[in-house]
Design a protein around this nucleic acid. Structure first.
Lengths: 353, 353
DNA sequence: GAATAATGGTTAAACGTTTAAACAACTATT
DNA sequence: AATAGTTGTTTAAACGTTTAACCATTATTC
């Protein structure tokens, strides 16, 4: 309550934030003029602008984001939804998106779906509630129903998907060429002399995994290798599933001499099982993963994998969002960006010649 | 511009969001009454409340967060700053914080400092700009100067630190008992018969690492083991540094028979070097890490480590923040919560008896 | 049956900006 | 000298809520 300091009583610091109005009072001009000056409006004289900015600095003025967002209808916030942040791929995508967006005055809000459909819906509600100006997302594994994404679109809020997307949604998408990546992997394995290549894939219903499966099949055909049903397995690609499916493959009368796993975590599970059973990698069985998570280089043997250029993906996703915010926003056509991936060959598949 | 559909012209969906006012109009009551009804104000009759809620649902009303935040001065947003999300510890802390906070109507904004002091400052500015109601942070490795945190405090915004904190700041803190954890580790190694235990620690200037060092020293003394300067090393605890420091230890005339590394990533580096040099773990040299990152269980040999109960830390941090928001907020005293950690023994230190 | 209390609202201002429209004081044009 | 244009500013409304203060009924009390 006390505003002035008085003897013996410590000055109570009333943290009244300085507003545009305070600046106006100091200079004896209107609040509107201050607002315009701060935004470099052409109708304000250079002299006034300079004075306003000086006073703003002196009073340590910080614009009230809520007020301007309310008035202008723009929050300058972008929502990001990822299955989890705890993966090098996602955290690195986020980092590069952030970099691009911050530069343009946008901040990001990160939420995790934890691969759960329900949490994904909640995340969307949260973000809409926070009045984000756009949403960049990668779908949860569980997600089949797309109503919640439709909702975003129907509100006129830009929606950009990356990595895990859906064609039916008809939104912007940034990802890598999964089909071609599978080709690269199979080709590499063939070169190493492998003739019986298994694939522990993701669920076909998810487009990227379906593409990897298709690429695998077509590449086998191309090299006139037999396509054996028991060598093509669908799974959720967790470590546990990787272990289980690998164990199943090892039960086969006619074992594969290479296993291509559509995700690094599942590949790790497979590696563990093979290590436990003293299988020589790559000579008995070669192993390839997908995603180039850092641990692929750490384990023994190190795992060959696909680098997805997360930094590029993040950058492109951010730019795609920014395109919506530009004034010259005349019926922008959808952006479908497919980046080329890169095979990183490591011990698990590199046979000595 | 078109609001009504006319023949041949597709209805243009004007996405006018429904407001409290729309609801009021439908029911022929005041907007204020609607607001109160939605907040279950006691001055509104049950009948009216029911009607309001029904109409709100029908019109698909979504409260405008910006407006309420502006008016009430509360954004219901909590800012979180972590060195990186790409670590199981941090992502798991975040997840449990989120859970607690969401339940109370708060959403979180995550930002990463990337262990950089400058980015940490930027993050704070970003969060203050977004008018968060509080900040929960873990300090970057680089951070020494604490002005940016003082700024938060001086604005009267609750600041809670976890894991990497600073005593001088005089803010709430949640972490584990680093000193005691070191004791547990040394004790475990002694039990395994180790007599020359090295410590690759973090920088002394960071309190948690200093505590680990102190714990290490005191535990050695307690067991009357020699404290050898060349066995106590400071480092930044990256994988690379772990490799380097381990290589140095192996150069010693009198090698250690156990190495306790204050971070899992550095421990991994140490492990790689020892594997490369065909050192038998744990029999030649036992290895212990800190943090219980998932990969510690994946590598060969699996690494003994300290579980920090990230879920608890997150929960406590969130609760500490919530305590500030309660009305009965009479000069709350600082919360310093120190949780007990747990030693997870794995192959890298478990000698066969 | 007058005073008091309880109930269930309404009014209007406020939060800090932005912005369309109005206006005043010049300068330039015819 | 009248008109138009330019420049730099002010006014006032608006964004969608929340909330203090007020008011009108109806119920309760003695």
């Amino acid at each position: 309550m006390l505003k002035r300091s008085s003897k013996g009583i410590k000055k109570i610091n009333i943290k009244k934030k300085t507003t545009i109005k305070d600046i106006a009072n100091v200079l004896n001009i209107s609040a509107a003029a201050v607002s315009k000056a701060l935004h470099d409006d052409s109708r304000i004289s250079a002299k006034t602008k300079k004075a306003v900015k000086q006073v703003a600095k002196n009073l340590n003025y910080q614009p009230n984001h809520l007020a301007s967002a309310l008035r202008s209808g723009k929050s300058n916030l972008v929502g990001v939804i990822v299955p989890r942040t705890n993966s090098n791929f996602f955290s690195s995508v986020i980092q590069s998106m952030e970099e691009v967006l911050n530069k343009e005055g946008y901040n990001i809000i990160i939420t995790q779906s934890n691969e759960s459909y329900k949490k994904e819906c909640d995340s969307i509600d949260t973000l809409l509630f926070t009045q984000v100006d756009g949403i960049i997302a990668s779908m949860a594994n569980e997600t089949v129903d797309l109503k919640h994404f439709e909702k975003v679109k129907s509100k006129g809020i830009p929606l950009i998907l990356f990595d895990r997307g859906e064609n039916d949604l008809n939104v912007d998408y940034i990802g890598i060429n999964d089909y071609q990546s599978s080709h690269m992997i199979v080709e590499h394995l063939v070169k190493q002399g492998c003739k019986r290549i298994a694939h522990i894939g993701g669920f076909k219903r998810t487009r990227i995994f379906n593409n990897r499966i298709k690429g695998y099949i077509d590449a086998l055909k191309k090299h006139q290798l037999p396509l054996d049903d028991e060598l093509l397995i669908e799974s959720s690609l967790t470590i546990k599933e990787g272990r289980k499916k690998m164990a199943e493959l090892l039960q086969l009368k006619h074992r594969p001499d290479a296993v291509y796993v559509a995700g690094d975590y599942a590949a790790l599970g497979a590696l563990q099982v093979m290590n436990e059973q003293n299988i020589n990698m790559p000579n008995d069985i070669a192993l390839v993963g997908f995603g180039n998570e850092p641990f692929t280089a750490m384990v023994t043997p190190s795992i060959t994998s696909i680098e997805q250029h997360s930094t590029d993906i993040g950058k492109q996703a951010a730019k795609t969002f920014l395109a919506y915010t530009e004034k010259t926003n005349i019926k922008q056509k959808l952006n479908k960006i497919i980046l080329d991936a890169e095979l990183v060959v490591r011990d698990s598949s590199k046979k000595e010649q």
